[in-house]
Amino acid sequence: MSAGLGWGGFYTARDARFQRRVLLWMLTFALAYVAAAAALRFRAALPAALPWLAVGAALALAFQVTRSYVQFLRGADELLRRIEIEALALGFAAGSAFAMLYPLLVRLGAPAVDGYWTALVMMLGWAAGGWLGLRRYSSRAGQSFGPHQGGSGQSLGSHQGGPGQSFGPHGDRPQ
């Protein structure tokens, strides 16, 4: 059992540990990807097996990144998991829309781009979705977190039983 740590209290200690693991594998994958790209670029000067090994290592690491992310997601705090899944959905929708619609824009004269842009749009959509989710569920300004939370005059807005509803100094909810 662990209290919220990390980004605004969204991560339990376990979430933070698993996310660090994901980030570590992503970093390793990024390095392997750069190495594989370099091996392909200079393949004429390298032993024939080396580019294959480099690409194979990048592929294996991509699998490991996916595996560690799924582990993180399955074990995550349930609110964090919801935020992550909604962010993934937004990223997928953004990437799919870009992949399908941008070719139409190219026909209208927009500059042609390669497939990396679809991945980039997906990742940006994922990041934006995560930020929006954290923002949506995070504590609002003016709320305190102590045992007497909901101090005098605290307003919790329209989602808490009506605009301007306030809770007493001991958290009593007026009925």
């Binding site: 662990s2 209290a3 209290g9 991560y11 705090d77 045992p147 958290g171």
Partner: peptide, 20 residues
């Protein structure tokens, strides 16, 4: 509030984050 627990204390008892 009746038990004088903070959100973090309750979160720890439940094994979830404070924001949850």
């Amino acid at each position: 509030a009746e038990r004088d627990w903070s959100q973090a204390e309750l979160a720890a008892r439940l094994g979830v984050s404070r924001q949850t």
